[in-house]
Design a protein around this nucleic acid. Structure first.
Lengths: 132, 132
DNA sequence: CCTTGAGCTTCCAGTAACTGGAAGCATTAT
DNA sequence: ATAATGCTTCCAGTTACTGGAAGCTCAAGG
């Protein structure tokens, strides 16, 4: 399929897809006319990139994550180690999103009126996981 | 407190804190010597920014989120509307992180050996929320 | 009191990750 | 046949930092 279709299916703009190819994140086949030609597997990778980028992982981290299943040379222990580090990171992100969620929810429910200047939410902003 | 202390407490580099001031995200008081002077409330805002940025919200989105409790002029209905949009976004992010998590977890447990070239994970990559 | 070093200031340049626009070839629609 | 749409590359601009230079300030040691 052409880049436009891959773009719609993955949620990434064509520009971004070409950029990812330029920096070596994934390379597409070329059709006879020079157009890039994407498989469903490519689309899955693109969709994966769209997601993990939007969740705050850097491009380099995404490259690592992609390599977890893409690199046949990699040692199984390696895969496991990297995946486990990323799992911990994901758990931290989930916890932070949950606390952000609770904060907003509380704001909507409790601070819905005129008592906002000293809204109790403000005290909760530092939340869990605060570095010291 | 000085910017260095605020940096440690918030988890943001001093450079980034100055940058946020430059683009109007938060302005700090100045001490007599010209040094920036941060209150605990400032630190909470910075910590909040550190979090929401690392979770994939853009600076403009963070500005909106910050304004939810900072702007006394804003109508209560406005606050509620914006907060609810952000809540939905957060829920989506949490769901995507959860599916990413499951994917990695599965990779670690099931694809731990030599069967990786056609690892079943690949089929799960598109996951939920795929745009069509 | 003087110096030395760490920390603060501003300013300017560079990087990461896109994003927009121009110029040109390919395909599709009328 | 022609016009619109979509693809190509290339180059420039944007967002959100990040590093480094030059200089001022402050706390500690001699």
């Amino acid at each position: 399929m052409n880049i436009g279709t891959a773009s719609v299916k993955s949620g990434l703009p064509p520009k971004t897809i070409r950029y990812y190819e330029e920096i070596g994140l994934l390379k597409a086949d070329r059709a006879g006319n020079g157009y890039r030609d994407y498989s469903m597997s490519d689309v899955h990778r693109l969709r994966f990139l769209q997601r993990s980028r939007s969740l705050g992982f850097s491009v380099e981290e995404c490259r690592q994550l992609l390599s977890l299943y893409g690199d046949k040379e990699r040692e199984s222990a390696d895969v496991k180690a990297i995946a486990e580090v990323k799992l911990a990171e994901i758990d931290r992100k989930i916890a932070e999103l949950a606390s952000l969620r609770e904060m907003l929810n509380h704001l909507v429910r409790a601070c819905n009126g005129d008592e906002r200047p000293d809204c109790p939410i403000i005290d909760g902003l530092a939340g869990s996981g605060t570095p010291q």
